[in-house]
Design a protein around this nucleic acid. Sequence first.
RNA 1: GGGCGAUUAGCUCAGUUGGCUAGAGCAACCCGUUUACACCGGGUAGGUCAGGGGUUCGAGUCCCUUAUCGCCCACCA
Length: 733
Amino acid sequence: MNEKFLESYNAKNTEDRISLLWENSGFYNPDDMIKAGLTKNDAETFSMVLPPPNVTGTLHTGHASMIAIEDIMTRYNRMLGKKTLWIPGTDHAAIATQSKVEKILEKEKLRKTDLGRENFLKRVNEFAQKSHDTIISQCKKMGASLDWSREAFTLDKKRELAVRTAFKQMYDDGLIYKAHRIVNWDVKGQTVISDDEIIHVERDAEMFTFKYASDFPISISTTRPETKVGDTAVAVHPDDERYQKYIGEIYDINFCGSNISIEIIADYHVDKDFGTGALGVTPAHSIADWDIAERNPNIKVRKVIDEYGKMINCGDILTGMKITKARERVVEWLKKENLLEKSETIKQNISTAERSGGIIEPLPKMQWWIDTEKKFEFKSDKINGIKKGEMVSMKEVMLHVVRNNQINILPNRFEKVYFNWIENLRPWNISRQIWYGHQIPVWYKGDEIYVGTEAPKEDEWVQDEDTLDTWFSSGLWTFSTLGWPDKDSQDFKTYHPTTILETGHDILFFWVARMILMTTYLIGDIPFKTVYMHGLIRDSKGRKMSKSLGNIINPVDLIEKYGTDALRMAMVVGNGPGNDINLDDKKIKAYSKFANKLWNITRFILTETKETNSNTENIEYSNIDLNIINNQKKFIKEITLEMNELKYYIVSEKIYHYTWHIFADEIIEKSKDIFENGSEEEKLSRKYLLIRSIKNILKILHPFMPFITEEIWQELPKSENDRDILMTELWPE
RNA sequence: GGGCGAUUAGCUCAGUUGGCUAGAGCAACCCGUUUACACCGGGUAGGUCAGGGGUUCGAGUCCCUUAUCGCCCACCA
């Protein structure tokens, strides 16, 4: 018996060493498993991508729990004998990373424009590289059995080809188009963002009720008086008797120094009972009003706010003013002109940008869009219910594959959320006015336009300056990591579609939906069969972990303190799909005790079975022991079923319970009596039983607590039936 | 405004298709140092399963309703 068993279990002295053993074995890579004869060449496959962490910093506890669950899936399936591939990678995260670096530059009193595009990108790349290295080492500390030989980055060369290929195909099919439409403009971040990157924040706002002019027949209400110089209509409900007589009339007015022309129109969108029942329509600076203008094509669009949040094109008084200043100025003017009728404080949801925190200023702009409603020719016969060549829209396919259960989302309730999102999906704005990301693969030369995977050879072609929404490249992730667009890629043929996608429910729309969109369109197939959504990790009081609360826990600190195995168990036990869990130090501590318990169990067994042969097959077991073996088999059968149903949160607890309270408290305790008073046959039988049991326990516990189980396995006497590395063992029956 | 979730022992939570005499970990209390383990063992106490109503032979589990907390979505100016 190795001397280390004379002391308590020491995770610190064990985990890095075991990590190296696994890595050097090469067995994270399914090809090496096959070469070594440990996996059959024609075995069933299990494949999964690691949701690529953003290179914006370090991993948090949420990542740690994600890695724990996914590694359990991976190790379990590997032990089932499947060709098992878990692909690592990181995400460039465009806006998120760029804003992070801009914030760092701010401290140096620098702006990105001071550096210029090239130098700025150099800074971002340095930052991203550092962050990447930290993330990778954290993944390894967690025991993640990721195949590092296949590591990918959303912004590397191979992924660039995938992005450009996808873009070109969508462009050629007319699904990607350039259009002048109203967008969500982030004044602070100086870029457009998509609808999903908006965070609504409730705030107090002043709502003013007034008339444009004393001879204007209808009063309107607004919280944004400054935008009223951009009004081109007043909309009333078609059935509103108060205003019907005015519909169709046009009024030319001088409003706060600006000449405006207002047509009174009817639109069903207007709520008769809200405010005055009449809505001042500002098509250029309100998304809802833009829609009204689209329904009423004679309504003009007048842009009065520019990209810097300043008033433009609106007369001498306001032009050049900042928005907030202009608001005060208009109110002042209204008062002076005696037009203001009412002013009250109301609660209002204001749109802010997820990353910069700046207020969103809707304004019209030329941008690239993806049309999810336009029909295209479907590419394959792989989706039940859609035939090759059939004309379908992305929206339809996205709904179809989940409705007809070709993709299952767990827990099920998220399917409803998913459907609701798709049904209300607007065109997806994919261009960003930032520098870090995939530059749009479009080149211009005068009026000519070229879209392709490479720049045109001749001179004078200038590439579009915008970059793509980061989710465009992550949408391709399940297949861009497997060699697509190379149609001969062996990985793609073998491992796509992936078996499962495990991720947080906060990125259901951002990522999961976009992967389904991209894959069904480009490949004509699903990206994964099952979506498993884990919950958020909160602190011990159930609060979200955030910088402002100062309650962020670094998983590496927890690992230092309790060991990775204990942390993994704490994150898995009781953590069912979709539910948030509170992470308590006490819980992790409990599982570090469990690791020690297992260690002591091993010590006892090794001491008692010194001279026993390690082959436990074909033994004449006593009746008592046969009974124990049968119960153990029943137990393994039971948890195997639950493993297949992805119920790790139950299985982990059951193994804990079995190991401690059945195996240690009952079976081992009674063994002492047998070794003292039993017959020779009974003693021998019991020794074999203990060896057999500990091996089985190590195997079933291995996906959950890989380090300690491997460490013990390495010290156990092996028989010819045992494999050298527990990670490569087969799941017991 | 729409949708979803949670409410089970002092604390954190399990409890899948209705069969439970309702479980686990931590905390508490009592006993125990018999060589695997005091990071331990044996034991005790603690719950009208948020409230109310219903379906059923039977409900923590299904239905309705109320309350509280939380989350997501939404163009109410």
